[in-house]
Structures are given as structure tokens and as C-alpha cells.
Simulated assay, not measured.
Amino acid sequence: MFKKAFATLALLATATLSQATPVYVGSYQVDDGPSWTTNPTVYSATEAAALLFGGVASDYDISTISSNIANINHLGWYTIWGIGGGTAFNEDFKLDLGLPGYNAPGGANTAISAYTDDNAIGAQYTNYVFRVSSLASDSNNVPEPSSLALFGVALAGLAAARKKKAD
């Protein structure tokens, strides 16, 4: 019974400690990126965040609304080759139907990127970036003291119960 309780407690503690709270790290406008012709790479919103703020795309959540974590909508603003304005897509979306790296435009709707100077121009096409990496991949993310204290109290309780059973 104690082994089962300890295993359950350890699993819950690991899940609690590995969850990360999103932290706002900055923003970028779609048109801050290079033009299609000078850097033909197509980026998802999370790939652009990793390029600008470091890490990997999976470290980030994106919002089109604001820098408030309550407003994270997992959407990013994108520019579409040959189409005016900007369009919101999922944060990990990108499209490249041209040659690899999109260095040969194939016409309207053949490339969609969240970080390219093209048709999505202006502050209204700002992507807000939140870092959400977990403890496993981010050594700077430290568990809250209350989580550690709760885990310690639970371990002490299990040890005391086991000692009492042994007596």
C-alpha cells in the first residue's frame, strides 16, 4: 500500500514540478522579418519566437491579443505571398509550396510566414511571445518553494506512516 501511495505521490509531484507558467518575453511584428527575396525562410510564429528569443519553437506560446497571459490564444499573425494584409493562423503553422526555402515565388497563396516583410505591415500584426518551457528542457525554470515544501511534507508523512506501521 505504501509503495502505491508513494508512487502516486511521486507522479503528482513530478507533474506539478514539470508544469511551467507562461512568462511574457516580448513581441515582434510580422514585417520586422526579412523580405522574401533576402531571406527566403518561411517561419511559423513559434519558430520566429525561437529565432528572436532563443531556444526551440516548442518553448513558446503565441498570442495575437496582448501581453497578458490570460489572453494567450495560440494564434499568430502571418503574411501570405501575394495577398494583402495579415491573417491569423495557429502558432505552429507555416506554408511553403515553392522551392525549398521559398526562393522561387509560385504565385498567390504559395507561402505563408509569421516573420517576413511583406503584406502584413504595422503594429496591428504584432505577435506576443510567452516562454513556456518545462523543467526538463529549461534549467532556468525553478519550482516554486510551495511546491517543494508540499512534496517534502508529503514525503515526511509517508515516512512517519511507514515507521508507525513497522512499530
Rank of each mutant, 00 (worst) to 15 (best):
G54E: 05
A57K: 08
L75H: 13
T41P: 00
D61L: 15
A70P: 00
P40V: 02
A20F: 01
T16H: 09
V25Y: 00
D61Y: 15
P34L: 00
V25T: 07
S27V: 08
H74I: 07
Y24H: 11
N68C: 07
G55P: 01
P22N: 06
T14H: 12
W77H: 03
Y43W: 10
G54W: 05
Y24C: 01
Y24L: 02
S27L: 11
L17G: 04
D61W: 15
S67A: 15
P40A: 11
Y24W: 11
G55N: 05
V30L: 09
L51D: 10
A50I: 06
L51W: 03
Y60S: 04
L51S: 14
Q19V: 14
V25M: 09
A20G: 08
G54L: 07
S44M: 02
A57T: 05
V23Q: 13
T46R: 05
W36V: 11
L17P: 00
Y28C: 01
W36N: 13
P40H: 12
D59V: 02
S27E: 12
P34W: 00
A70T: 14
T38A: 10
P22A: 03
T21L: 14
N73V: 02
G54C: 04
V30F: 06
T16G: 03
W77L: 07
S63G: 06
T16K: 10
P34D: 10
S18P: 00
N39K: 10
I72L: 07
A70I: 10
E47I: 04
G55V: 05
Q29R: 14
I62A: 03
P34Q: 08
S67T: 08
I72A: 08
S27T: 13
V23F: 00
P22R: 05
A57V: 04
S63L: 02
V25Q: 07
Y24N: 00
I65T: 14
A50V: 03
T14F: 15
G33M: 06
G54N: 05
L51M: 13
S35P: 12
S27W: 00
A57C: 05
S44L: 03
Y60F: 09
Y43V: 01
T21M: 14
G54R: 02
V56I: 14
S44F: 02
T46Q: 10
Y28E: 02
T46W: 01
E47M: 04
S67H: 09
I62F: 05
L75R: 14
W36H: 14
L17N: 12
L17A: 09
V42M: 09
D31T: 03
N71S: 12
T16Y: 10
T46N: 05
A57M: 06
N73A: 02
S18L: 15
D61T: 12
P34M: 00
T38H: 04
G33S: 03
T41Y: 11
N39T: 10
L17C: 09
D32F: 11
W36F: 15
A48E: 03
V56Y: 07
L52Y: 12
L17M: 14
Y60V: 03
G33I: 04
Y43P: 01
F53T: 10
A48M: 07
Y24E: 01
A70G: 13
